[in-house]
Simulated scan of single mutants.
Amino acid sequence: MFKNKIYSNLLIMIFLFSGCSNNTNSNISTGSSKITVKLSDAPGDYEFVYVDVVDILVKLNNDDDSENGWQSLEAINTGIYNLLELTGGVNVLLADNYQIPSGTLNQIRLVLGDNNTIVIDGEEFPLSTPSAQQSGLKIQVNEELLPNFEYTFLLDFNVDESIVNAGNSSNIILKPVIRAIPEITSGTISGTITPSSVLTEIIINIDDQEVSTFTDANGNFLLVGLPEGIFNLSINPDPSSDLNDLIIEDIQVLIGENTDIGIIELM
């Protein structure tokens, strides 16, 4: 009888200990979610910037910095893309409603191949990649994915900040600067600047952070990944054009919507 009581108490202790251990992962959701990933770019002052997209990976429910826990989304539409064509709302679909476990999406990793090049003054140069990024660029996300919901993330490649000239044209480095933008929690601002022949930078400031883009060949622009609120828009044409800068005040941004400011003629 005494032995049976000791044995029963041990079983209870083991059960309680097991329950406590499982509580450490209580923040991990059960079930699955679907994720779509797109790649776009903010226009830059280059002729062509080609990147070799190989794969897209995610890390779920794991906030450490190790190489463990990465999962491929089996990227579609891999290949070499001119980033300067992925502007004004144009993007490339890298993952389409791929099913993954629900929980916290900690990081997204864009894996690039070796065929990355840039064209300057009509001449093509290779883009070297720092060894620390050859396995792919890690992009912090830390978004909660609930079961049975679909999520879309836009990888916004900032080509102007990603190209580093190390002193000569034979050593141009690609150090990708990319934001991961959940489309469902952001809005956009678009418009058209004339004359379209003048390269124009569009800027807004959000909590001391500058978000900017350039007009495309038709004068169109699109600012993405903007929080809800009211903002002032700075329009800065190329100084050599002798056109005046312009500020448009009190532009409202709504989640999941685009605010089109129409055609703006610079004087």
Rank of each mutant, 00 (worst) to 15 (best):
L10C: 09
I12Q: 00
M13G: 02
M13A: 14
F15M: 13
L16D: 00
S21L: 15
S21A: 10
S21I: 13
N22T: 08
T24C: 06
N25E: 11
N25A: 11
S26E: 13
S26G: 07
S26H: 11
I28Q: 11
T30D: 12
S32C: 07
S32R: 00
S33W: 04
S33Q: 04
I35A: 04
I35F: 03
T36G: 04
L39R: 03
S40W: 03
D41P: 00
D41R: 01
A42T: 15
P43N: 15
G44E: 03
G44L: 03
G44V: 05
G44Q: 03
Y50N: 12
V51W: 02
V53A: 05
D55N: 11
D55P: 00
D55W: 00
D55H: 00
K59E: 14
K59Y: 03
L60K: 02
L60M: 15
N61Y: 08
N62F: 02
N62S: 13
N62R: 09
D64W: 04
D65H: 07
D65C: 06
E67H: 01
N68S: 13
G69R: 03
G69H: 05
W70V: 10
Q71F: 00
Q71V: 12
Q71S: 12
Q71E: 15
L73S: 08
L73A: 11
E74I: 00
I76Q: 14
I76E: 15
N77F: 08
N77C: 06
T78N: 08
G79I: 05
G79T: 07
I80C: 01
Y81C: 05
L83V: 06
L84Y: 02
L86I: 07
L86F: 08
T87M: 01
T87Y: 00
G88N: 15
V90G: 02
N91P: 02
V92Y: 06
V92H: 05
L94D: 12
A95F: 06
N97A: 11
N97Y: 13
N97I: 08
I100G: 05
P101W: 05
S102F: 05
S102V: 02
G103M: 04
G103Q: 03
T104E: 13
L105K: 01
V111I: 11
L112N: 07
G113E: 09
D114W: 02
D114T: 13
